[in-house]
């Protein structure tokens, strides 16, 4: 006895894969673009999602009243989240930790890596401010015990303490820890953790869609030559390469 199902066109695919690239002219492509219907309402939601996730609470508020788009999260929670983020960005890590715990103590309890990174940032700020004694004490009492639990924490700790070994940190191999980008990294980590705790996605959808556009264009490149958008910020259609 034999049972099987039907699918059309499997052979057809193999055939079409072997043939050369199809060329689509600008006129043809514009016709195809015109057939695509994007709803304004959906675009508004996409913009609102960006404002909310990136923490532009005032802009989100205004956008709600100007476009009638409802945010997918309580706007009040953004203010708290942004206060935490700002505190880290300005180097007030202690303040930030306190604020996170006010918001939801589970966030740091359930997220040892985030907690370690915040403590590490605190150590960095102490070193930046020349508080050497305080920094040493903090490293030994607060950070070293955590390093014992986790090998990667220990390595991070050693890397950070190495800052103390250099008088001129601008020439030090771990000097990047003092860079603003380190603060931003920590800030975005804590931002993501708060969003996750509010069961909201931690990244806005817009950048993912832009990546998807680049990916989709690359995929289509294999099969066809068509007008691409190479510059996302102008959204200009290029002429197809032939």
């Amino acid at each position: 006895m034999s049972i099987f199902w039907v699918v059309r066109q499997l052979a057809y695919i193999q055939e079409s894969m072997a043939t050369s690239k199809k060329v689509i002219t600008k006129e043809e492509w514009e016709r195809k673009l015109n057939d695509v219907k994007i709803r304004k309402e959906d675009m508004n939601k996409l913009v609102m999602n960006f404002l909310v996730t990136e923490g532009y609470v005032d802009a989100a508020e205004k956008f709600r009243s100007e476009s009638g788009t409802e945010p997918d999260i309580d706007l009040a929670t953004i203010t708290d989240r942004m206060a935490v983020k700002k505190a880290v960005q300005c180097g007030n890590v202690e303040d930030a930790i306190e604020k996170v715990n006010d918001l939801n103590p589970e966030i740091l309890d359930t997220n040892p890596q985030l907690f370690f990174h915040l403590q590490q940032q605190r150590l960095i700020e102490l070193i930046r401010n020349g508080k050497i004694e305080e920094a040493l004490e903090f490293a030994q009492e607060e950070l070293a015990p955590r390093g014992e639990e986790n090998q990667s924490f220990l390595e991070e700790l050693e890397r950070t303490v190495a800052l103390l070994a250099f008088e001129d940190v601008s020439n030090c191999p771990v000097g990047e820890l003092l860079d603003i980008s380190q603060r931003l990294k920590t800030a975005s980590e804590v931002n993501a953790a708060i969003l996750t705790s509010q069961s909201h996605e931690k990244d806005p959808k817009l950048p993912s869609l832009l990546k998807m556009l680049i990916w989709a264009q690359n995929q289509l490149d294999e099969k066809a030559s068509y007008p691409r958008i190479n510059d996302l910020s102008s959204a200009k259609l290029e002429d197809p390469a032939i």
């Binding site: 695919i13 673009l33 695509v36 959906d42 998807m212 556009l213 102008s234």
Partner: peptide, 30 residues
């Protein structure tokens, strides 16, 4: 610009599908 980019994304997915013997996913913003 946003609409232009989304239309391009949509058109690319549809075109690729049609060149794949009408097989595969379309893009739906919604």
């Amino acid at each position: 610009q946003l609409e232009k980019l989304l239309r391009q994304l949509s058109a690319c997915c549809l075109e690729r599908r049609s060149l794949n013997g009408d097989q595969g996913e379309a893009f739906h913003l919604h």
